[in-house]
Design a protein around this nucleic acid. Structure first.
Length: 423
RNA sequence: GGAGAGGUGUCUGAGUGGUCGAAAGAGCACGCCUGGAAAGUGUGUAUACGUCAAAAGCGUAUCGAGGGUUCGAAUCCCUCCCUCUCCGCCA
């Protein structure tokens, strides 16, 4: 959520930035400013009326104590209109604030100045490519066939017990999941992140705090009986750990990592691109989250991007890094890097990580602040990234590493799998 | 799920209609004391909004949330949420 004071002081810039994000309702900006003016006026009226009423109430108290009953009654008789006014102004203020809030949450975050202009994924900027795309033998198989051949993943069984998009991992397939999770967590810990294990269901306030609500309401599974949402990413519970918190300056940066399953309805997805592990309703992911001083957030973003790239390098997967264009970026991000691995059998790039700086956008919703050098409270910056999401890593790993002897496990992972080949 | 108790500032905890943004203690910060530290001692120590160029100051709101009674509510009433204890169920 943007701060109204910021919008007021930088209106032209806000409009220009929103345009980069391909935002379709610039008129909201003026509406918000007008509502805010109205809010201030109404609050002023309410405050001064309340002040008068409070003063009178105090007077009455004094008069009663000193036995001046008649005088007290006289003052009392004047309080009627104040009471009505206070009620009326209060109701007005509430309704203005609600309308303001409702419009404010419709504004996406402002993109960073380095974000390329563009609408579609094709307009994302390729920052770098790393590693050789492997050339596979003629009879190379896509991962869903490999998963069946080696009995690693059973999609049909998942359909039976739940539905499409809920795979069952078996044998070495299951162990591979566990190995990747442990590997990612250990690497994160080495990089200074402390591990947390979290609730997989969150309340509405948490969903709002990180920006999933109200924007992505339809993408989350909802447990109506208890009013809880299944998390679409560990970002939600991890970041909400710091909701309504004022950190000391020396507590920054906060670095957390957590493994969780993630649940996404993926309403509207279909077709060949969702085959196998490409798109699931439930998948596993290790997330890294940082809460940092605003001055450092962009260097931290680079650091997080390097961490993710380091993981891909250790796994020996060819990848590229994209700087997302304004139109392809999420609602809440200021700058996002996507990491994609090359799936040799499918001959296409698969997104395996997304690393973003949210600047104060989430912090403002979360009321996540720190005490700055002047001793004042200031909004912190939040960042997060997948490090990493498993399914597409598994997909490329299976496809790219297929040999005549089976699927070769990357060296870095062998201590975790305790087998070198899937055969 | 049943019965009971309770939700006050960073924490403990007092406060049952006015002098309460809130005693006291702890913690924390700064100063004094000390060779240095501890002890001792002094001062300070919520957040948001508004007013203001800004700071100070001032005003308003906030004692789980919302509503009500009253000139006046942390305190009385109603609704909801949450926590704890006991019972039941149970990995």
């Amino acid at each position: 959520m943007l701060q109204v004071s910021y919008i007021r002081d930088n209106k032209e810039q806000v409009l220009a930035r929103l345009a980069v994000k391909n935002f379709k309702q610039p008129e909201l900006v003026d509406e918000i400013l007008a509502l805010d003016d109205n809010r201030k006026q109404t609050q002023n009226r309410l405050d001064s009326t309340s002040a008068e009423a409070n003063a009178a109430a105090k007077r009455i108290g004094e008069l009663m104590r000193t036995g001046q009953k008649e005088e007290a009654e006289k003052v009392k008789s004047q309080t009627g209109t104040w009471k009505e006014d206070i009620k009326r102004f209060g109701e007005e203020l509430t309704s203005i604030e609600q309308e303001l809030h409702q419009k404010l949450v419709q504004l996406p975050n402002l993109p960073h100045s380095s974000v390329p202009v563009g609408i579609t994924p094709e307009e994302n900027e390729v920052v770098l490519e790393h590693g050789e795309k492997p050339t596979l033998p003629e009879n190379a198989l896509p991962h869903w066939e490999l998963a069946a051949k080696y009995n690693l993943i059973d999609f049909e069984l998942g359909v039976k017990i739940t539905g499409a998009g809920f795979p069952v991992y078996k044998g070495k397939g299951a162990k591979l999941q566990r190995a990747l999770i442990s590997f990612f967590l250990d690497e994160a810990e080495k990089a200074g992140y402390s591990e947390v294990m979290l609730p997989l269901l969150v309340n509405e306030a948490s969903g709002f705090g990180t920006g999933q609500l109200p924007d992505k309401e339809g993408q989350m599974y909802f447990v109506g009986q208890d009013n809880l949402y299944l998390i679409p990413t560990a970002e939600v519970p991890v970041t909400n750990l710091y909701r309504d918190v004022i950190l000391k300056a020396d507590e920054l940066p906060v670095k957390n990592t957590g493994y969780t399953p993630c649940f996404r309805r993926e309403a509207g997805s279909y077709g060949a691109h969702v085959r196998g592990l490409n798109r699931l309703h439930q998948f596993d992911k290790v997330e890294i989250v940082q809460v940092v001083h605003p001055d450092t957030s962009y260097s931290v973003l680079e650091e997080m991007s390097s961490h993710v790239q380091g993981l891909l390098q250790k796994l020996g997967l060819p990848y590229r890094v994209l700087r997302l264009c304004g139109g392809d970026m999420s609602f809440t991000a200021s700058l996002t890097y996507d990491m994609e691995t090359w799936s040799a059998a499918q001959q296409r790039w698969l997104e395996v990580s997304s690393v973003s700086n949210f600047e104060t956008y989430q912090a403002n919703r979360l009321k996540l602040r720190f005490r700055n050098a002047e001793g004042k409270t200031q909004l912190a910056h939040t960042l997060n990234g997948s490090a990493l999401a498993l399914p597409r890593i598994v997909a490329t790993l299976l496809e790219n590493n297929q040999t005549e002897n089976g699927i070769k496990i990357p060296e870095a992972l062998v201590p975790y799998t305790r087998f070198e080949y899937i055969d």
